[in-house]
Design a protein around this nucleic acid. Structure first.
Lengths: 242, 242
DNA sequence: CGCACCTTTGAATGAGATCAAAGATGGTGG
DNA sequence: CCACCATCTTTGATCTCATTCAAAGGTGCG
């Protein structure tokens, strides 16, 4: 069955041509599954493959010298993963499955062809890369010199907002992350994440039931997090389609 | 005088064709100067221009809600700046001149043309964007859950390494950043940056003379910072030139 | 020369880490 | 279907690193 997660996503911003659509579908033909807790790519691996996440959650992380790790980014369905190996021979990050997941796999050379055949798609993938850079900057801002409560709030904001953007707008989400993992993402200890989650619940901002988090007051959560929603991708500068 | 900083940089990785070179030179024709302390772009500006830094230092930052700010990235000559507005209508960051500086300016639509006319250049600019994402990740790792000394060491590593990469390998650098700014970059207070700089000097890793920092023991500095040098840009997957 | 800004140093305070141990939860095999 | 074990969550007590507050030197620019 030939479909394309990337096309679903990009198609929300521009009307894709037949040619573009076909190219994306072919890109995502080859599939692979990943078991929860398994690494798709290891730090310093000389991998040559990119992935499009089809189902499940992944995250990327780096080891931290003192035994810890920093989780860089959560990946949700439609996300393009391992773009780093366009610039570097060795992967700077480990990509791990948070839940069982399915991905599409393709060699990076395929992207080279895409740049020649479909300049507009290439430009949009450039956009995606830039957007990821900005997301990383947002997280950096939320971790640099912010109190613990705001960091945890920011993580929740990110999760809710991105799930919304990927087309499943729910105010109740099963978050498959352990508090340890949330700590690795926010630069806090698991213990302190726990306290902050409790506080958010006490203040009536969220409601918790095991791993299920219900968003009761999105505005207040965003304010706590100093979260700024980013508008949709820009398309005005893109070259004409082919 | 038609030259191109970007071409100087990219030309170190691939042999640029006449056409590519010409396109880059034309891209950088228009120049502008920025006074020390002045903002080139403000957060939330609806700017449509990208820049290539020709001389001087810039940095990008975001406001932090509690009055503070996080400095995201330092920019040195040859750097491509404001790529964020390829993906977003409003600039997510403020770009400020650390020293008096000169930049080349061009509209983002020019990049659209480049994607059509010179797919290989487009791909390389994609690389640059990806590399910036990775750099941002490196900084995130150094700030997440790392002691203050390591953060300051990482900042110094970044400065020395990037100046080296831009072709001025010196073990003695005039750093035009105030300790306040170094704090905004590392997520520390100016006071604590001061103490950490003193400690690095006491331990014989650096030598200080006002704003001039001499690198005495690069290995030890990198070890303190848990710094990993990134290899040169990958070129194997690039499409053929045009 | 004088003023603004930056650096340096000291002392008190506090947010988050660390250490420790008691509940939940869920998956596995009997 | 239940018991068990591993893993995760929760809570308390103590400690530490970085912040905050304060004030005294430097430095360079107008």
């Amino acid at each position: 069955m030939g479909d394309s997660r990337l096309a679903e996503w990009l198609g929300r911003y521009v009307r894709l041509t037949e040619g573009e659509l076909g190219a994306l579908v072919r890109l995502e033909e080859q599939r692979r599954t990943v078991r929860r807790g398994t690494a798709l790519v290891q730090e310093n691996d000389a991998s040559r493959e990119l992935f499009v996440l089809r189902s499940g959650w992944l995250h990327s992380s780096v080891a931290l010298g003192n035994g810890g790790r920093q989780i860089m980014r959560l990946y949700f369905p439609s996300d393009l993963i391992c773009m780093a190996l366009l610039a570097f021979a060795e992967s700077p990050e480990t990509v791990t499955a948070v839940t069982d997941a399915t991905v599409s796999v393709f060699a990076r050379e395929r992207l080279g062809e895409l740049f020649v055949d479909h300049p507009r798609l290439a430009a949009m993938i450039g956009c995606v890369s830039v957007a990821e850079r900005v997301a990383m900057a947002d997280r950096l801002a939320s971790i640099g010199r912010t109190p613990a409560l705001a960091r945890v709030a920011a993580l929740l904001c990110e999760i809710f907002t991105r799930l919304e953007a990927s087309g499943e707008p729910r105010d109740e989400v099963h978050i498959p992350l352990t508090q340890e993992e949330m700590g690795d993402a926010t630069g806090l200890t698991a213990v302190h994440v726990n306290r902050m989650m409790r506080r958010l619940a006490e203040e009536g901002i969220i409601e918790r039931n095991g791993p299920v988090v219900r968003l009761k007051d999105k505005d207040r959560l965003c304010r706590q997090a100093n979260y700024t929603a980013r508008d949709a991708l820009e398309t005005a500068w893109l070259p004409p389609p082919r």
